[in-house]
Design a protein around this nucleic acid. Sequence first.
RNA 1: CGGGAUGUGGCCCAGUGGCUAGGGCACCUGGUUUGGGACCAGGGGAUCGGAGGUUCGAAUCCUCUCAUCCCGACCA
Length: 570
Amino acid sequence: MRMTGLFSRTLRETPGKTESKGHEFLLRAGYIRQAAAGIYSALPLAFRSLRKIEQIIREEMNAIGGLEILMPVVNPAEIWKETGRWYSIDAELSRFKDRNDRDMVLAMTHEETVTDIMRDELQTYRQLPTMVYHFQTKWRDDPRPRAGLIRVREFTMKDSYSFDRNQEGLEKQYDAHYHAYFRIFKRCGLPVIAVASDTGMMGGKVSHEYMYLNPIGEDTIILCSSCDYSANRQVADIHKQLYPEDLLEIEEKETPGTKTIEELSAFLGIPARKTAKAVMLMGRFTDPGDEEKSYEKLITAIIRGDLDVEEAKLQKACGALALRPAHDEEITACGLVPGYASPIGARDTEIIVDDSVAGSNNLVAGANKEGYHLLNTNFGRDYAGTIADIASAREGLACPQCKEPLEAKRGVEVGNIFQLGTRYSESMGCTFQDENGKAQPVIMGSYGIGVGRLLACLAEEFHDDKGLVLPAAIAPFHVHIVNLLKTNEEAEKIYADLMEAGLEVILDDRKETAGVKFNDADLLGMPLRITLGNKAMQDGEVEFTVRSSGEGYRVSLGEVVTSAMDVLNR
RNA sequence: CGGGAUGUGGCCCAGUGGCUAGGGCACCUGGUUUGGGACCAGGGGAUCGGAGGUUCGAAUCCUCUCAUCCCGACCA
């Protein structure tokens, strides 16, 4: 491509509203332009990189037996009603009516669509296992898009779906994806780690997320440096020290002005672990009689004072569609007193008790009376509830595997893999006949990679203070020719030779000063720059500059192609 | 959905009641330059986010509204 033919321009100044260097350079270099909040166009440069990323993914998906298809963005609402997600997902799922007044949705993922296809196509176990994938636009009406391409509302995702006759087959395909994903990220050049994750709205049991560790990420990952433990904080386990004791008599004590655990433990002179705190949230639940309706109920979470509640775990433990902080009136209506709350005497509320509380005794809890607490409360004797792990992992707490202190890091989720099981095949009736002629639900898995988010992460990982420094595998072009000669004659010759050899080349044939051309080349970030200048040209040479290292040297005209190949292959 | 901020040519910004809305970058024309964002001269481009109001007079004050960004809630 010649730069005189490229309409997109570079920006000398940083547009406002950029949060990260990666976003800034993608904008300044003219890779992307914003259309609306969380909605971007890919200009020619980004488009080429996105295509390359897709091709890498495509090759790796094909290598594990994937069949590429293309499913629609617009779905009939019926299939989403069948799986219940029409009802369980809030405004993030966009709905509309077609001209015949039928409910439609913009697909935010394609489990429904693919299951709908497969329930018609799959008849016998002989057709299994199988796996399909596609690259398709997803629309998720995120309430708060941010950080350029990191978190958007419209994006392209590679999503694949596996179909097996049993768990063993699923695990095989899951494992194949697990390794294929590492190959994909490695080929793109992005360092990632796989962590255990929450299954969220996808349902299912086992899942992993591929995390690019970077402070701009929105997920918190809990890691152990002493062993290999890693998990998204939403599901991270911790080793909890328990403190069982002989039960003592419960006793009411006046504790004025002790609404927080800190105030309480200071007032009583006891460690936070000797207290049990109550956290009240309103949970939204599906009406058992009518799945189109839902109702709210107060959830009281009880956790030891030295720990915090992890909402994702709590939501799973109580089976709520969603949780929100409860208002004071909602709390008092159930007999609890904010600041002095405990499950003792509470009514009309579901009580979830962390195992740290169930396994420790004689804890101080609220008396549900302003200014009073109860000493020596004990789960089982004084109140009942469902025991679950609802504790939030944080830096310094003990690793569940080796008990060493955990670390916390921020990360961007660039891919995820889910063992769905029969969550979709059962609700949609996607079955096959086994050897005995008996209908069995298909065992499914789903696997996603956000293509644009991957590019955003690469821009984040590969830049210096002057611009992008992209790896050859995903850079829009391999070679950037900066022509400083009066005419384009020699440059055109080299341009043609390099392309003849199969390289992708962008030629700066504009009538611009050297400074402008160099700065733009730095900004665009191609791996190899070839400069044509008077001095070197008189010696029959051109100048090579490796963008990543800044290394520069001269190459004679006859060796341009082979030298360029050498640089790009190393 | 709560809290905060910002909307002025393609981009970055100045302009807090008073002449025809200004600068830098970018763009066009001519000339001079030509190895790290050149210089000179000339030029084009704006219903100051939108609507309503106050006023002799509004980019500027008031009301409403829309959009974008940040924090939180939310999020495969």
